[in-house]
Design a protein around this nucleic acid. Structure first.
Ligand SMILES: Nc1ccn([C@H]2C[C@H](O)[C@@H](COP(=O)(O)OP(=O)(O)OP(=O)(O)O)O2)c(=O)n1
Ligand SMILES: [Mg+2]
Ligand SMILES: [Mg+2]
Length: 607
DNA sequence: ACTGCTCGCGCG
DNA sequence: AAAGCGCGCGAGCAGT
């Protein structure tokens, strides 16, 4: 049955397959070492090769590679990994003149190659990333399955019914046919997407994404160590607090039925709003800003907010996290979306590791293995620096050249005093970025009151806000220079977002997106220079922050390496503004200090 | 039981 | 809630 695929294509019934495709390639099934050597010899001369892997499941740590499909122009090789060890493919992927490897969602295939001990091809083109880059800002950016992309750019329909079939048994003709087609279509897609990228002037962005891609696969494959026991303890404490607060809310509101049970579900915004309206507050929302505005007249408000905080911890940061611990590795392998936002930022799901509570009790549950540490590096004031460059604000540029800290300055401006705590500085971020991206005076005033306790009249708030814009007059000009109507924006790296509608989006997108460009350039550098720190692996990316895990002995080296990659990655986009990276060596993600013994200095050693 | 929506909120 | 932006997740709720 398998032999049929080596020559004439056949379907499951053994009948010849008819196809409209006149250029159907030669399909070859490789089931022994000699055939693999021969296949690699032939493929090695191809400049571009489509790669697709069929696996027994979606988990590179648990499931197995079954079939590796390699498509050159006019020739598809299917390597049956149950019959032949694919190590020989290292010769295809590596060395001078190695081919460009084209794959769809290559992060998936790369993780299986990594698990199999195969090298990561040095030159990659991911058709999914390309489609996301081209569609940034449109709903199509979220519909990027191979079938979607093939339909969009080739007008071809792809049958995915075999994708989820059983790949652990005897391979059927239908499966082999499907596998060959999937790989072959990648080459045509590559041609079409490369042309689209060229005409949209997005080639540089695609290059950047494809260079960052191995680091993202590396990070996902690595996962991160997690102390589930301590995490669950925090959940139980939050649960007790939540239930206590619910009882107190019910008692305070007098919302008990005959049995003393609550008639209100405090987790329902609708019911909370109804309670508040009955108590004389004309609210249409119950978010924190609304609740704060009635806090003076409503004793339930602090209880509701505390209840919400506890509920958040029980729900979003609760016991379900134990399900994310991988049975084999004992670590959490979140799913990283390399292009997760319309701006170009990454995103993270199942679970989202980019919005862990800042509370060290939670963050310290993420820990390196024994004898290892985390090295965490975060860009300083990054979007202010980028905005200074984009808006060409002389005052802001010069402030950065002098090494000033604008978050601290803004905290001082609003507080009216010199002394600023780390919390004050953290709060100033929302003010700086709020004003930078178009926040109005009303919201500015309420924020200042809530976080700094400074009560301002609307006129006083307006004056402070004007003072901020007087300090950075280039930012005000930049605001006024924004065009009306729908626009497309570009980052300093050339990344494009289309359909940008509102004034505030037009301000934010190129700045946030440039930050993503720089961070991805840093990831690309980390991958290509990883030999500088052999024990180091990436474990987290949090927008302008990268966390590595490495041996204690290599920590200092890793810190230098990481900060250099990050500086270089970002600095290429900033001509006038310096880039600063804050790097720390820590025993866990909560920031527990690491007691690091520096690497022995061999140069000056006595022997 | 599942899907799709809104609301609210965690993070950068 | 207000001209800050970008995400993902859980709960409630309505519809099936
Ligand atoms: N409320 C916020 C917080 C952050 N950001 C964006 C802009 C920041 O530059 C970027 C990174 O967040 P950080 O917390 O790292 O803030 P900074 O880099 O500005 O400051 P720091 O020097 O503390 O790193 O995320 C934002 O838009 N709005
Ligand atoms: Mg930062
Ligand atoms: Mg940060």
């Amino acid at each position: 049955m398998l032999g049929a695929l080596c020559g004439e294509p056949a379907d499951n019934t053994g009948n010849p397959v008819t196809s409209a495709d006149q250029t159907r390639p030669d399909v070859r099934l490789v089931t022994d070492a000699a055939a693999l050597v021969e296949a690699v010899r032939e493929l090695r001369s191809a400049p571009v090769i489509g790669l697709d892997c069929e696996t027994t499941g979606l988990d590179p740590h648990g499931d197995r590679l079954r079939l590796i499909q390699l498509a050159a122009r006019g020739c598809v090789c299917l390597v049956d990994c149950f019959r032949v060890r694919p190590c020989e493919l290292a010769r295809l992927f590596q060395g001078p003149g190695a081919p460009l490897i084209v794959a769809h969602n290559a992060k998936f295939d790369l993780q299986f190659l990594m698990a199999a001990g195969l090298p990561v091809p040095p030159r990659l083109f991911d058709t999914m990333l390309a489609a996301q880059i081209l569609a940034a800002g449109t709903p199509e950016a979220r519909q990027v399955s191979l079938a979607d992309v093939a339909a969009r750019y080739l007008g071809e329909t792809v049958d995915k019914s075999e994708q989820t079939s059983d790949w652990s048994g005897e391979l059927t003709a239908g499966q082999l046919e499907y596998a060959a087609h999937d790989a072959a279509i990648l080459l045509r897609l590559y041609d079409a997407l490369r042309e689209e990228l060229r005409t949209a002037r997005l080639g540089n962005t695609a290059g950047l994404e494809n260079r960052a891609l191995p680091a993202v696969a590396w990070m996902e494959h690595t996962g991160i160590g997690f102390d589930a026991e301590r995490w669950l303890e925090l959940g139980l404490a939050a649960e007790r607090r939540r239930d206590e607060l619910a009882r107190e809310l019910t008692a305070t509101a007098g919302a008990e039925d005959l049995f003393g049970n609550s008639t209100v579900n405090w987790a329902s915004p609708e019911q909370v709003a109804e309670v508040l309206r009955r108590r004389g507050h004309e609210v249409t929302s119950t978010d924190e800003a609304t609740l704060r505005s009635i806090q003076d007249r409503e004793p339930l408000v602090p209880l509701i907010l505390a209840y919400r905080e506890a509920s958040k911890r029980v729900g979003t940061y609760g016991e379900r996290w134990a399900e994310h611990v991988h049975a084999r590795t004992g670590r959490i392998h979140a799913s990283w979306r390399q292009i997760g936002a319309a701006s170009g930022r990454m995103a993270c799901t199942r679970p989202n590791l980019q919005n862990l509570p800042r509370d060290p009790a939670y963050r310290s549950c993420f820990r390196p293995g024994a004898g290892r540490v985390f090295v965490k590096a975060d860009y300083s004031q990054i979007e202010l620096r980028i905005a200074a460059e984009i808006a060409k604000d002389r005052r802001m540029i010069e402030a950065f050249q002098r090494g000033e800290d604008l978050h601290t300055l803004t905290a001082r401006l609003v507080l009216g005093r010199e002394a600023v705590t780390p919390e004050d500085r953290q709060a100033a971020k929302a003010l700086n970025f709020g004003l930078l991206y178009g926040m109005g005076v009303q919201r500015f005033r309420d924020y200042a009151e809530l976080h700094y306790g400074v009560q301002l009249s609307l006129e006083e708030a307006a004056e402070l806000r004007r003072a901020w814009f007087r300090t950075y007059p280039g930012v005000r000009r930049w605001h006024r220079a924004q065009p009306d109507g729908e626009a497309e924006t570009r980052t300093l790296g050339g990344r494009k977002r289309i359909g940008v509608k509102s004034f505030t989006e037009k301000l934010n997108t190129p700045v946030q997106g440039t930050g993503a460009d720089g961070l991805k350039a840093a990831l690309a550098l980390l991958w290509t220079t990883r030999d500088r720190c052999p024990s180091a692996v990436p474990v987290l990316v949090v927008h302008d922050e990268i966390v590595l895990e490495c041996d204690v002995a290599e920590a200092e080296q890793a810190a230098v390496w990481l900060s250099e990659c990050m500086r270089q990655g970002m600095a290429q986009f900033l001509r006038r503004v310096p880039v600063d990276v804050e790097t720390k060596i820590i025993a866990d993600y909560g920031g527990t200090p690491a007691t690091v013994e520096p690497e022995p200095d061999l140069e000056s050693a006595p022997f």
